[in-house]
Design a binder for these strands. Sequence first.
DNA 1: ACTGGCACTCGCTACAGTCGAGTGCCAGGC
DNA 2: GCCTGGCACTCGACTGTAGCGAGTGCCAGT
Lengths: 340, 340
Amino acid sequence: MGLDDRKLAVLRAIVEDYVATQEPVGSKALVERHQLGVSPATVRNDMAVLEEEGYIRQPHTSAGRVPTDRGYRLFVDRLSRVKPLSPAERRAIERFLVGAVDLDDVVHRTVRLLAQLTRQVAVVQYPSLARSSVRHLELVPISTTRLMLVMIADTGRVEQRLVELPAPVPADDVTDLRRLVNEKLVGSRLSETPPLVQALVDESAPHLRGAMTTLSTVLLETLVERHEERIALAGTANLTRGGLLDFQGSLRPILEALEEEVVLLKLIGETQPSTTRVLIGDENEVDNLRAASVVSTGYGPGATIVGGLGVLGPTRMDYPGTIATVRAVARYVGDLLAQN
Amino acid sequence: MGLDDRKLAVLRAIVEDYVATQEPVGSKALVERHQLGVSPATVRNDMAVLEEEGYIRQPHTSAGRVPTDRGYRLFVDRLSRVKPLSPAERRAIERFLVGAVDLDDVVHRTVRLLAQLTRQVAVVQYPSLARSSVRHLELVPISTTRLMLVMIADTGRVEQRLVELPAPVPADDVTDLRRLVNEKLVGSRLSETPPLVQALVDESAPHLRGAMTTLSTVLLETLVERHEERIALAGTANLTRGGLLDFQGSLRPILEALEEEVVLLKLIGETQPSTTRVLIGDENEVDNLRAASVVSTGYGPGATIVGGLGVLGPTRMDYPGTIATVRAVARYVGDLLAQN
DNA sequence: ACTGGCACTCGCTACAGTCGAGTGCCAGGC
DNA sequence: GCCTGGCACTCGACTGTAGCGAGTGCCAGT
């Protein structure tokens, strides 16, 4: 792969121009707009090599070049520096997140902020229950055979679920149940809960066992499992920028994918390390999103990660800028959670 | 306005054909597909009158006719009967809603069901807090100066909010606060709450007054006000059916409108009587939605209404079918809530 | 190894011509 | 008086042709 420095510079120039203009870029325009110090003919030769290597391609024989997914990949990995945020953006972030009163509020503000700053579709995962620990469990009697189970996590997340008891349970027993589950479970991570919950059932007094069993089932089935991951979404209207040129003319598959929580979680929820993840076009496992790119990262108080957030846009996006924004927002949100 | 029966029949035929084919309909095709018993020439004369009255129009001089918003309005008001649901649809509704475990679950299932059946964008408002009454209020101490206020409404809705207390409050006082707010507020409608809450502050013992004041503020400000209305949305991908022919080629304004909760509430939240409301194109107050129609209705246990639900689609939609589906789903959801 | 020149490709636009669906109008018939 | 068949007309959709120009690949020359 004889990709000398100049060829890389050419690739970078192509990506930058194409992202800016949304039009295939030719050799002549390239030398005019960037100081490459060589003639169009030379650039053409370089382009031929780049095309052969699969970094760029020609939409039509007589058109300029367009980066391929592979080209964007190389650009992101080796040719771009993360743009520092403008002071204006910095201020926007701070102003937007100050005054959040609630976890719900934080998440909603964040997703809107992210959509607005990047001008793309923003996705924010609520702090994952699997990565939270229990701060408090509350049992509220609704009737003699129904309880409302409310779980408050240390991340501020609150989940509730109706529990149908197999038999009527008197108020005193509810008090006992409440005390028991709190004694055993408060402070423990939900992902490590199953054995604890089992022990809870085994150790409870006979007259509580029936209620405790259904209670534990609900806890395990609905609160611990992935099913209860939550997602906030904003900025879908941004998909229509670039008037159907992006996404090869059909928003349909994208919108469909965005309606599936499972898909969204896959996109932004699997961020383990604190690095920012960039998925470009094809690299995406979801078929519907092969015309899109995703920039995502984890967030959380301090160094721990409790959830993911990111944005989705056309492969033709401003990667350095987007990456910088996503990171910055994640950091601010993490700080906000840390104060909690 | 000399709109005799035949002219109305012609209008009905035009609407039905246009909705089915999505193409301007001409006089010849009309007499072929409907038994009007007259010749194309006669139909043409009728069409000329209908056009003069503003019920239909010609997109181009040499094209067929297309209904105007006014034409759809007349069609909906006087020319269509509500289609009975097919047994298949009936079954789909039942199957879909059975097994809902939670209010959240009910709402999510409902909105997806509605989107799927009507093949349009579905919107479901959570039971309005203003129309609910308090079943229980729970105060969970997070720290000495922070409480989590959890409100459970009789509609099954659960809202929580963090309360920052002005001064540390010992556990015993929290118990007192909990008892007081529950004694006073349980059973009352939230819309009628303000005086009760005020009384609560006035009557509380001096050492509780500070905490009670902020508590009441939170109750009033965030739980009672419109701000806390919630909305579920599904089926945005359906906007892309009809490949950009609907919505005059731009989804942008629609998607923007759908991101604004306030707008959605205006659309479906203002349903007072139990009748189904149909807003066609221009009739809509939201500028962004002047190319769309909305069919909405209220739902609730029995005859009371606790929230709204509906669908949004192109003005060119199957009104009778959509109206029938929306009504049926609303009724089923109401029944489901009544069982609660 | 780079550059200028040149022939070539091919999409885009404009233009002319044809086709046909659909209309409006009018004279004639029930 | 209302309906009908006929006829001339309009105009969008489609087709084919031609010219333009951006952009390329290649080659010979420095």
